[in-house]
């Protein structure tokens, strides 16, 4: 009995009071931050920061792209644009195949319908005759 009571008893937790305090602080911070990010000034600031980062990195990015392109040309390797164009052509090809698949499906359905229709039409004519013959 006392063992079960001991098992069920909550173990001593030295951080419990700290956790309560932390949660209250985080809740308050969360509300404050949600309000902050939902302001025009936050939108303006992040927009400006992003704009600056992209503008500042543009010359380096362009230089890097140019040198990679030159390197690829030296080794007679396709550029990123060329590989992308090839991938687009593959997708177009896949679409054509998908169109063909759709047409084939329709043909198969039409063919099976044509096959079953005469049989269904013929059934009432032939079956009584065959019945008589039997």
């Amino acid at each position: 009995m006392s063992e079960t009571r001991q098992e069920n008893a909550k173990p001593f937790d030295p951080y419990e009071s700290f956790r309560g305090m932390r949660d209250k602080y985080l809740d308050a911070m969360s509300k404050a931050m949600i309000d902050t990010v939902n302001t025009e000034s936050y939108a303006q600031a992040t927009g400006a920061m992003l704009d600056y980062c992209i503008s500042a990195s543009a010359p380096f990015r362009e230089a890097l792209e140019k040198s990679i392109l030159q390197g690829l040309q030296q080794f007679s390797l396709p550029s990123r644009q060329e590989v992308a164009a090839l991938a687009e052509r593959f997708t177009n090809l896949e679409m054509r195949l998908d169109d063909l698949d759709a047409k084939l499906d329709r043909l198969l359905i039409a063919f099976s319908e044509q096959k079953t229709e005469p049989a269904a039409r013929a059934e009432p004519k032939h079956s009584p005759q065959s019945g008589k013959r039997a």
Partner: peptide, 8 residues
């Protein structure tokens, strides 16, 4: 708000 054309 974030994607407004004035900022983004």
């Amino acid at each position: 708000r974030w994607t407004d054309k004035r900022y983004f």
